[in-house]
């Protein structure tokens, strides 16, 4: 039996589901965008460390020294590694071998530079794996040749914790909102269909349809919008068939 209750359930369901989905999707997108922006700000902050080390390294390279000869870089790296969230900083040769590092145990090892993605400006490349962020910047000598890289490793745990906090906060504050949206939509749809049915039945009084028989959908005057519309349409068709 298709009557107003079925119609309300169907369209109410569709609208409520769409509204809930739209709000959830909008929030998800907003969160993802925020996540991106937040990490971008962190990358920009850590990028300052890369730039600072690069500036100091390239000053030495511009004097004609080889990268491996820049012995005072170890001190520079140790000071720069004191920046917030930085785990350690390496200077790599063009083969990826660690020439200098703020973590002495890494000297001589080979860095894993897989999965790096260049930023829009092309000056920095980045890779985020779990909680570790790797930021690299190319090192050039006085002739413009690329001779190695600065690699800054940072711990993103504080940022991820902050993001998890925001996620929790959003879920707890918006979940009731979505439930409220569902109920409000169902109520609004119910009222609209009912009022549309009433208005339609008021107009119908002048039409040449016989009264509805008991049990036939559409009886009651207050609702049964769909049945009334169909009767109107079929009425038109009957006239054209006859």
């Amino acid at each position: 039996m298709i009557d107003d209750r079925v119609l309300v359930a169907r369209v109410g369901g569709v609208i409520a589901a769409t509204v809930a989905l739209a709000i959830a999707l909008a929030l998800l997108l907003a969160f993802l965008k925020f996540d991106q922006r937040f990490v971008d700000v962190t990358v920009a902050r850590l990028g300052l460390v890369v730039e600072e080390v690069r500036r100091q390294s390239e000053t030495g390279l511009a004097l004609g020294l080889e990268l491996a000869e820049l012995e005072d870089l170890t001190g520079v790296l140790q000071r720069a590694a004191g920046a917030r969230d930085v785990l350690h900083i390496d200077i790599l040769d063009d083969q990826g071998a660690v020439l200098f590092s703020s973590a002495p145990a890494r000297l001589g090892s080979r860095a894993d530079l897989g999965g790096l993605v260049a930023d829009a400006g092309g000056r920095l490349s980045r890779r985020a794996r779990d909680h570790e962020l790797l930021l690299t910047g190319r090192l050039g000598n006085g002739f413009g040749q690329m001779v190695g890289d600065v690699a800054v490793y940072a711990d993103l745990t504080p940022q991820h914790q902050a993001l998890a906090g925001v996620r929790r906060e959003l879920l707890s504050s918006t979940a009731p909102l979505v439930v409220f949206a569902l109920l409000l939509t169902l109520l609004a749809v119910f009222l609209t269909v009912r009022l549309s049915g009433r208005a339609d039945s008021g107009r119908d009084q002048s039409r040449p349809w016989p009264p509805l028989s008991p049990g036939q959908p559409g009886r009651g005057g207050g609702g049964r919008l769909v049945v009334r519309v169909v009767r109107d349409k079929l009425g038109g068709q009957r006239k054209s068939w006859s």
């Binding site: 509204v19 925001v166 959003l170 909102l177 949206a181």
Partner: peptide, 23 residues
Amino acid sequence: LTAIAVAVLLVLSLLASWLALHS
């Protein structure tokens, strides 16, 4: 019915967005 969807969506998504932006 679409107008209802628009109204509910606008009001609630603005509210949700405000909460989100604040966080």
